[in-house]
């Protein structure tokens, strides 16, 4: 690895260090670039930053998002209709960086739009635009060779998932391949706000933690309310909220800001 270029992994590690020192998990909001329009999505990300986001997961729209529920399906469809593409996502991130946004940014994209761009070219361009890592929901570690070399060359995170169905053997595999953090799925299913998180979630997180050691664990899928954040805070290093924020954004900037603040403040509170 060329350490002079390894900004992404370093920035992500620093984000978790800071949150750990404060005794709270990092808040990593997801937002689809291009929804409800290219300019409005930039505003949404600025709003989330103002509300105290520790890092960002920026959605690249794809026509066939098979891991997403109705909220993000609809949002990414709108983003596509508004002409959002991988190059425009990268240009938008460049704009945010030029404005002084310093938090880590990870791209959330399915494999095919990245393949179409060209993997090596994509990772170089993303690195230059200020992207710190990739989260690819249809890329299990067995298929990661396609991306791993170029990510390592640029010091970019390549985030793999663990699910409640993952065996201990698979937990070991993902821990060994982890670059940046592990995205732990709270439930079996697609993205989308849920009223309750699964009752056996802390058992699952405990099972992962035994093998993960100090590798950061970030929980996602289903998280939508401050009480969810309070219940998981002792067990994770970070959490992702997507669909609930997309819904809030549809109701206006004030709603988005208010929900983001409530989620962020919940990280300080005892469960």
């Amino acid at each position: 690895m060329n350490h002079s270029k390894a900004r992404g992994l370093r920035a992500i590690a620093a984000m978790f260090d800071l949150a750990r020192q404060a005794g709270r998990p990092a808040f990593l909001p997801f937002f689809p670039m291009g929804y409800p329009s290219p300019e409005a999505s930039l505003d949404a990300i600025r709003t989330l930053a103002a509300a105290g986001a520790d890092g960002f997961e920026i959605g690249v729209p794809f026509s066939d998002p098979l891991a997403d529920g109705p909220t993000i399906q609809a949002a990414t469809q709108i983003a596509l209709e508004k002409g959002m593409t991988v190059p425009k996502v990268l240009a938008s991130i460049k704009t945010l960086r030029a404005e002084g946004l310093t938090q880590p940014i990870l791209l959330f994209s399915y494999v095919n739009p990245l393949l179409a761009y060209g993997i090596d070219e994509l990772i170089a361009a993303a690195n230059a635009a200020g992207v710190d890592g990739l989260i690819i929901p249809d890329l299990p570690p067995e298929e990661a060779d396609l991306f791993a070399g170029a990510c390592d060359e640029h010091g970019m995170a390549l985030v793999f998932f663990l699910a409640p169905t993952s065996s201990d053997e698979r937990v070991r595999l993902v821990v060994n391949q982890a670059r940046g953090f592990i995205y732990v799925l709270s439930l079996t299913g697609v993205t989308g706000a849920r009223r309750d998180l699964p009752p056996d979630l802390s058992d699952f997180l405990g099972r992962v933690r035994v093998q993960a050691g100090s590798t950061p664990l970030v929980l996602g899928f289903g998280i939508s309310q401050p009480e969810h954040v309070r219940s998981i805070a002792p067990h994770v290093d970070g959490f992702i909220v997507g669909s609930a924020l997309v819904k809030a954004a549809a109701a206006g900037t004030d709603s988005l800001h208010e929900l983001a603040l409530r989620l962020r403040h919940a990280t300080y509170e005892e469960s």
Binding site: L66, A67, V111, P137, D138, L139, P140, E142, E143, F160, F161, L162, A163, P164, T165, S166, S167, R170, V174, L185, T188, G189
Partner: peptide
């Protein structure tokens, strides 16, 4: 070919 699916499905 291959297996490009979410982690949840790999064990299945």
């Amino acid at each position: 070919g291959g297996r490009f699916v979410p982690e949840t499905l790999v064990p299945a």
